[in-house]
């Protein structure tokens, strides 16, 4: 039995969306901890290089293809510069070759070290940059461990993604994979992920308490990101009045009438 009622959150990008909950599992990638053998060295290095090249072209594609604002462009450019930082690459190769870490473990180790250094500086500016480094690191690790697909999810135009957190790179890859709306447990208005969401027109609500506890996979929802509300299992009356509120209501949404 689905629970009715509504949850409140912080509007990142305003709009109204009727859809169904789709959970995006947190893919806690299992990073292999064993040391690699000499015979595996070459494969690990090329796995790292492949992932860097692939993500670089992914980022460049986004930069080329869309009408991005200057802010978004800056964010994506900074991710590119981090991804291709020669000092970080040198450190990654050293960690694989000399310390015999796997490619994924090396990325995790090197980026964690950088993040810790930034934290120790206790400076607002470095703390703000932390998220970019974390995001780039997570993206590389995901790519390496999934052997080629960093964005496996395909969204239908009825999906409302339900997530714990969302990163800037998830925002851009999900939007390109067809996602139109999402809700998060965490998040803030000025995060890089939120700035990107607004630029890409993703209807979004963050900082929604009890989100994971209240919502089931496939549950019908109205995301009213004008009022900052997520309405669970809406009544036919609520649906009818929401449909009228939607500025661009199209025939596709008529599946609700059945």
């Amino acid at each position: 039995m689905n629970r009715a009622g509504s949850l409140q959150g912080l509007v990142v990008h305003s709009g109204i969306f009727i859809g169904r909950a789709k959970y995006q599992e947190k893919r806690e990638a299992q990073i292999p901890s064993r040391k690699i053998k000499d015979t595996e060295l070459e494969a690990e290095i090329s796995s790292l290089q492949n992932s860097l090249n692939h993500i670089e072209s992914e980022l460049n594609n986004i930069l080329d293809n869309q009408n991005l604002t200057e802010t978004e462009r800056d964010i994506l450019q900074s991710h590119l510069l981090i991804l291709r930082d020669p000092e970080i690459e040198k450190e990654l190769l050293h960690t694989i070759e000399s310390l015999k870490y796997s490619a994924a473990a090396a990325v995790h180790a090197v980026y964690s070290k950088i993040c810790n250094q930034f934290k120790e500086m206790e400076n607002e500016y470095f703390l703000e940059r932390l998220d970019d480094y974390k995001d780039v690191s997570r993206r590389i690790i995901d790519f390496i461990l999934n052997r080629g697909t960093s964005e496996p999810t395909i969204w239908t135009d009825q999906d409302i993604a339900i997530l714990e957190d969302i990163s800037p790179s998830q925002v851009s890859s999900y939007a390109r994979a067809g996602l139109k709306a999402y809700c998060c447990v965490n998040g803030s208005y000025n995060s890089h992920a939120s700035i990107l969401s607004r630029a890409l027109g993703l209807i979004s609500l963050v900082s929604v308490e009890n989100l994971m506890e209240q919502i089931e996979e496939g549950q019908e929802l109205i995301l009213d990101a004008q009022e900052g509300l997520l309405i669970l299992s809406p009544s036919p009356e609520a649906l009818a009045s929401t449909v009228k509120k939607q500025p661009n209501w199209r025939e596709e949404t008529s599946f609700w009438k059945s």
Binding site: I82, D85, P86, E87, I88, I114, N123, Y125, F126
Partner: peptide, 13 residues
Amino acid sequence: VNGKSIMGVMILA
């Protein structure tokens, strides 16, 4: 620092 490294340039603060 390496002037081609964004991390390096940042650390100069």
